[in-house]
C-alpha cells in the first residue's frame, strides 16, 4: 500500500527533480544522467527509478525502462503508478503475461480511485486483446466504463469489440449511452458506423444527412452515405458520392502518403467501388502508418472477399432483415 505521505513525497521529489532539470538541461539524456547520479548518491529509490524509466521510454529504450521499473516494484510493490507504467512497458515489449501480472497486482492496490481503476482495466483489455481473448477484452472495456463512464476511448474500444463479436444491438445501445453521458461528437459518428454495420440503412441515412450538411470536409461522410445508399440499392447515387469523396481525398492526401485516416477512407471508397486490389493496397499502407487493428482487419476481410468467402456488407443476411 502506498501511503499518502509516500505519494506526496513522490510528487515533491518529482518537483525537485524536474525543477533541477528545468534550470539546467531538459533533454531526456540529461535527465537520465542527473537521475543516475542521484541514484548513486542516495541509493535506490522507487520514485527516482520511475522517473528515469519514463525518460528511457521517451527515448524508446524499453528494455532499460523495464529494468528500472522492475527495481522500483521491488522497492514499492504497492505503488500503482509504478505497476501501471511497468504493465504498459511490458505490453509494448509484447511480454503480455508479464504485463498481466503487473495489472493484477495494480488492481489489488487499496485506495485506487475510480479513474485509476478504469485506466488499469483498459490496460488489461489491451493485454487480453494481445492474447486474442476478445470476449475478455470486451468485458474489461465494459467494466472500465462502469468505473469511469466518461472514458471516450473505452466506448470506442468496446464498440470495436462488439463489432468483431457481432453484437450490433449492444454496440448501438452502448454508444447511445456514451453520447448521453459524454456528448462526444466522435461517438455520434461511431453510432452511425454501427447502424451501417448493422445494415440499418435508412436510420443511418437519416442520421448522416445533417452531419454531411454541417461538414466542411465531406469525404468521410459521403462514403458513409454511399454505404447507406448502396444498402438501399441506390447504386448510382452511392457511386457519385464515392467519386466525389475520392476527389476530396486526393486533394488532401499528403505527398508522402502518411495519413492513415485518409488512406482508410480511400480504401473503403475504392472497396465500395469494387476496386478491390487498390483498396487492399491502401489498407496495407494504412496499417503501416499507424492505422492499427482496424486497418489490418479491413485488409484481411477484403482479401477474404476477393476469395469469395464473404460479401459486402459484413452481415448480408441481417441486411435483408431491415
Amino acid at each position: 500500500m502506498v501511503s499518502r505521505g509516500a505519494r506526496i513525497g513522490w510528487s515533491l521529489l518529482c518537483a525537485f527533480l524536474c525543477l533541477g532539470v528545468a534550470c539546467a538541461h531538459n533533454s531526456p539524456e540529461h535527465q537520465i544522467e542527473a537521475l543516475s547520479e542521484r541514484l548513486i548518491r542516495e541509493g535506490d529509490s522507487a520514485d527516482v527509478l520511475l522517473e528515469r524509466a519514463i525518460e528511457y521510454r521517451v527515448l524508446g529504450k524499453l528494455k532499460e525502462a523495464a529494468r528500472d521499473l522492475q527495481r522500483a516494484v521491488r522497492l514499492a510493490p504497492g505503488d500503482s503508478l509504478v505497476l501501471l507504467e511497468l504493465a504498459q512497458i511490458e505490453l509494448q515489449r509484447r511480454r503480455v503475461s508479464e504485463a498481466l501480472l503487473r495489472v493484477r497486482r495494480a488492481l489489488q492496490v487499496p485506495g485506487l480511485t475510480t479513474g485509476e481503476r478504469a485506466a488499469i482495466l483498459m490496460i488489461r483489455s489491451h493485454c487480453r486483446a494481445a492474447q486474442g481473448s476478445k470476449l475478455e477484452a470486451l468485458d474489461d472495456c465494459s467494466e472500465a466504463l462502469r468505473w469511469n463512464p466518461q472514458l471516450i476511448s473505452a466506448y470506442l474500444e468496446r464498440s470495436a469489440w462488439q463489432q468483431r463479436l457481432h453484437r450490433p444491438h449492444e454496440r448501438i445501445l452502448g454508444l447511445e449511452e456514451g453520447i448521453r453521458r459524454t456528448g462526444a461528437g466522435l461517438l455520434v459518428a461511431e453510432r452511425i458506423e454501427a447502424l451501417l454495420d448493422d445494415a440499418q440503412w435508412q436510420q443511418a441515412l437519416d442520421a448522416i444527412e445533417p452531419e454531411l450538411t454541417s461538414s466542411r470536409l465531406q469525404g468521410t461522410w459521403k462514403i458513409r452515405r454511399a454505404r447507406a445508399l448502396k444498402g438501399l440499392s441506390r447504386q448510382t447515387e452511392a457511386d457519385r458520392d464515392l467519386q466525389s469523396a475520392l476527389e476530396e481525398i486526393e486533394l488532401r492526401m499528403p505527398r508522402e502518403v502518411k495519413d492513415s485516416s485518409l488512406l482508410m477512407d480511400r480504401a473503403l471508397a475504392r472497396e465500395l467501388l469494387g476496386q478491390t486490389e487498390s483498396a487492399i493496397q491502401d489498407y496495407k499502407l494504412a496499417a503501416r502508418c499507424g492505422g492499427g487493428e482496424e486497418a489490418i482487419e479491413a485488409g484481411r476481410r477484403l482479401r477474404r472477399t476477393r476469395l469469395g468467402r464473404s460479401l459486402w456488407p459484413w452481415h448480408p443476411r441481417r441486411a435483408t432483415q431491415h
Binding site: 471516450i152 476511448s153 470506442l156 462526444a184 461528437g185 466522435l186 459518428a189 454541417s214 461538414s215 466542411r216 470536409l217 465531406q218 468521410t220 461522410w221 495519413d259 492513415s260 485516416s261 502508418c289 499507424g290 492505422g291 492499427g292 487493428e293 482496424e294 486497418a295
Partner: peptide
Amino acid sequence: DLDRKPSGAMAKWLKADLEKAK
C-alpha cells in the same frame, strides 16, 4: 499521455473536428 496514433480516440476526434471546422 493519450494515444497519439490515428487509431486512437484523440486522433479520430481531431479528424472529425476538422471536418466540421468552417
